[in-house]
Design a protein around this nucleic acid. Structure first.
Ligand code: FES
Ligand code: FES
Lengths: 148, 148
DNA sequence: GATAAAAAAGATGGTTTTATCTTTTTTTTT
DNA sequence: AAAAAAAAAGATAAAACCATCTTTTTTATC
């Protein structure tokens, strides 16, 4: 479920965790060692098993890379160099998220607008543009990444 | 829960129904007859009892007006003339909705930013401004309001 | 080959959101 | 006063989301 305006947060929990995890991986891009779920979960103060599911989902969609076995873990490789926030969001919350009518009505078009369409269409396109311009590998700036 | 970006919709279901119902009431502002839950629910094709809860919540917060008994129902009166979309959203999804960190981290400030803060702070403030500038009573334009 | 480490996958609970059902209160009309 | 209409409130259930526990698969190291 993607609630762009109402709800407790702009992103779902799954999506928040996914983004934070991927940015964390981006910080370790240089090092050639993999990062395990436990290490990520501990660093971000996020439930480990829930994060594991999220990382599996991202990995299945080739947004991050993984290796099994000892010294295994997750990493951002060359395959993932172009991954954007929009990819992450769509992977976790579905593609429809940023295209459907914000009031849940069918046929969101300029010709068939709901009473809010013209007020928010522009903002939403702007958000989409921002999301697709954010390449996750480049989102590292030593900024706050975890709670606690 | 208000999910401004991720999730199925920008607004929660409760919030969508609330907004659509209030706009529907705005259309009947002129007439001095009240509108019952059943009539609204039928017009918007939304679950009647769920809508009833939502209207009760809006009424409790004085965002809409109601009268009980025969010929009772809901209406937008002078008390509700200044109600904005922001009021509706905050009433349904909580005040914190548009202020907390979009990654769920504590202390969303420019001095203590998460990696996404600077990318989205502006857009979110813009959305908030748009929401607070939309007086619901003025949102009527004969546009699509219900599915089906 | 045996062992251990780690992701992957399967199964199961808990919580919140969404939705429905029933009862109560208020108020108009008869 | 009685009856009826409608919101208000209480209780319960279904669905989605969040979280955890367990088992399986893969793979490196011994
Ligand atoms: S946002 Fe409602 S029709 Fe486009
Ligand atoms: S949006 Fe994350 S700190 Fe402001």
């Amino acid at each position: 479920m993607l609630n762009l305006i109402s709800g407790e947060n702009m992103f779902t929990k799954s999506c928040q965790y996914a983004i934070r995890a991927v940015i964390f991986l981006a910080e370790n891009q240089a090092s050639d060692k993999n990062t395990g779920v436990k290490e990520i979960a501990d660093a971000l103060h996020v439930p480990q098993q829930f994060l594991a599911k999220i990382l599996q989902q991202l990995s299945r969609h080739n947004l991050i890379s993984s290796v099994k076995g000892p010294n295994g873990g997750f990493y951002l490789g060359e395959d993932n160099a172009e991954v954007t926030l929009l990819d992450i969001v769509e992977c976790m919350d579905g593609k429809s998220t940023l295209s459907t009518c914000i009031l849940g009505l069918p046929n969101c078009t300029n010709e068939h607008p709901c009473p809010l369409h013209h007020h928010f269409y522009g903002s939403r396109e702007g958000l989409k543009a921002t999301l697709s311009s954010c390449v996750v590998g480049a989102l590292v700036n030593g900024q706050v990444l975890s709670a606690k």
